[in-house]
Design a binder for these strands. Structure first.
Length: 188
DNA sequence: TGCCCGATTAACT
DNA sequence: GTTAATCGGGCAA
């Protein structure tokens, strides 16, 4: 059986945790799959929500590692992050794409799409497919409804610039599973 | 207070 | 290629 990822896994540099998450599996109430794309956001990074200090929205980022930070994107979509580093560091990994493996019927119904490749390929899409919303903000990742397991075996991880940001846009802090058809966007 | 922008997406031309 | 949807945060006034 795969090893469950506990809080200690996240109590490290966000730049170590992010690539280590590629190939891990995430389920929310049994629905989900394999993480194939993530991005790292450090509190010293101008693109990070925590860069300018705590607010109501980003408060969870300033708490201990191993918890979910969920925020509303463009006033429309939900996006989920995993908080990393010792408490107060305010760094997190944005989950950007999942290769679906469980709960296809529910995901298709929630997404209103039968295109398997588009079910979880994008931070907003995966939250819709897994039904992640503000009620998951601040929940621990090692207890239900979350289930998170370490990858088994070796994977090839590629890195490149993050997507959709203007500040620190050149930093290669997007990580993906090499060649995966479920990436939100291919790596150059 | 008001205005602009954003870790996005789908539906347009 | 462009644009609308829609709201929290940053910053000027």
């Amino acid at each position: 059986m795969p090893k469950r990822l506990t809080k200690s896994f996240f109590n490290r540099s966000v730049h170590e945790v992010a690539p280590d998450l590629i190939g891990a599996t995430l389920f929310v109430d049994g629905v989900g799959g394999r993480l194939v794309e993530v991005e790292a956001y450090h509190h010293t990074d101008p693109a990070a929500h925590s860069f300018r200090g705590p607010t109501d929205r980003n408060a969870i980022m300033f708490g201990p590692p191993g918890y979910a930070y969920v925020y509303r994107s463009y006033g429309i979509h939900w996006c989920v992050n995993f908080v990393c580093e010792p408490k107060g560091s305010a760094s997190a990994v944005l989950i950007r794409a999942i290769e679906p493996t469980a709960g296809f019927a529910l995901m298709r119904r929630r997404r209103g799409s039968s295109d398997e490749r588009l079910l979880c390929s994008g931070p907003g899409r995966l939250c819709e497919a897994l039904r992640i919303t503000s009620r998951h903000n601040g929940l621990a990742l090692d207890v239900p409804p979350f289930e998170l397991f370490a990858r088994q075996g070796e994977v090839e991880v590629v890195a490149g610039p993050r997507i959709g940001i203007t500040k620190a846009a050149e930093k290669p802090w997007r990580y993906g599973l090499k060649g995966s058809p479920f990436l939100s966007k291919p790596f150059a």
